[in-house]
Each structure stands twice: as C-alpha cells, then as structure tokens.
Amino acid sequence: MGIDRRAFLKIAGLSTILGLGGKAAFDILAPGELEASTNAASPGAGKRWAMAIDARLVDDKVISEATSACHRHHNVPDLDSAKEEIKWIWEEDYEHSFPGHQHEFVSDDIKHAKFLLLCNHCSNPPCCRVCPTKATWQRADGIVMMDPHRCIGCRFCMAACPFGARSFNWGDPRRVTRVPELVAKNQGFPYNKDYPTRAKGVVEKCTFCVDLLEKGEQPLCMTAANKVKKGSFTFGDLSDPESPIRSLLRKRYSLRRKFELGTNPNVFYLI
C-alpha cells in the first residue's frame, strides 16, 4: 500500500468525524486495494439469498438438529420462559405458521406437518423501514442484518415484523451461566467461543449465517438438516435462474408466510 499506517489512522479518524462510513475510509486510503483486502466489497450485490424448506421432509430429528446447530453456533440461550424466549429458528404447526389458512378439511399430512420458521429476510422488510438508527437494514444481497452495537432497544422492529421473527433480550442473556435454574439447561454456554453473545436490551434474529456465507459456506440450519434428510433444505440465489433453488421452485408448489402483506418473504415452504 502506498500509504503508511499513521496516515491510515488520520484518514480513518477524519472520515469518522465527517460521518463517512468505514468503506469510505478504505476508498480514500487505497483505491483498488479494497477488493484485495476484503472478499466482499459490497457484499453479494445483485444476489437475492433465499431458503426453501421441504415440509414433507421436516421431522422431529431435522427440527432438533437444525435448531440446535443454529442456536449453539450463535450462542442463543435457553431462558426457559415463553415471554423472554429468544429464537432464531423454531418449530411451529401449520395452523400457527400460516394463520388464517387452515380450515377444517385440510389434508391430514398438512394438518400435522411441522414447519421450521425463521426470519424471512423479506425483500421489502418493514423492520428496516421503521428502525430509527439503521441498526437493522437490508444488505445488497437481500439479507436483513442486525447491528447489535447500534440497537437502542426501542423494539419498533418487533412491532413491524408480521412474522414474529425478532427476539428481544429482556435481560442479560449470560445470566444462564449464573441463575441456578437455568444453568443445567445451558451447560457450556456460550457454546461457540468464536461468536459473541448479545447484551441485554438489544433485538436479535437470524442472519442467514452471513458470517459463514462470506467464507463461502452455507447456513448452518441447512447443513444440519440435510445431514438428517437430504434435500430438506435448499439455500441459494434467486437472482440466478440456474441456481438449484430456482429450479426447485419451478418444479414444486411453494407457500410463503403472509405473502399478502407485500413484504416479499424469501423463505419458501414446499408442500
């Protein structure tokens, strides 16, 4: 690089004062070097990540493996309370996954099917629209991200999300290592020493494993589920007509939760 480190800090400091983002600092610092030092300049621009879950293949084992893979990697505690519950991916029945859709004559396999719900990473996300600090926003690749460093805990996003995909840290999540009744349920918490926990007072949710995607890996729920039932989960880029998820959606009938609200969910349920 044609610039010394002291100059980097000066530029970085100055650009912070001027309110420029981090990327701007890099651009001033070394135009062209940006791509070399990162593997995602404007992460996944043009992509539209989506997930398809085959309701026929989802069983208890798929559910427990997918949920625990996710929750252990992301250090999601078990707070043993429906009110304070934090969940990134969870099981739900047909009636409550698709409220208003059920009727008394719905087929038995659907009536008793189990669905795995997670953030829909909507293409038109109301949560991002309402956030007063841009603590939640949509990336160029469609992933709805959450910046826990910036969240003020106003919970407007939770009121705006029609899917109940967002959880709030009503208390310190790390209390599961201190409160005797919770310790047993959370042996080894935080499970993943390379991933942070959250602090009290911030909202959290599924990130489509953005940290793994950027390393070229796949979301953990999918990897875990497919180990149990091959093909139960498909993840891919909807903007690519040749992607496996697109060809799957061409072949199979799919449902999306509350599509009529116009948020354009990107999680599909194959029936």
């Binding site: 600090t133 603590a135 910036r150 003020i152 805990g153």
Partner: peptide, 10 residues
C-alpha cells in the same frame, strides 16, 4: 428503551 445510554444514536 432497552439501551437508554444509546439514545443519541437517533
């Protein structure tokens, strides 16, 4: 607010 100390983020 869950994080009142960050209110100035607004």
């Amino acid at each position: 607010l869950g994080n009142p100390v960050r209110i100035m983020n607004v």
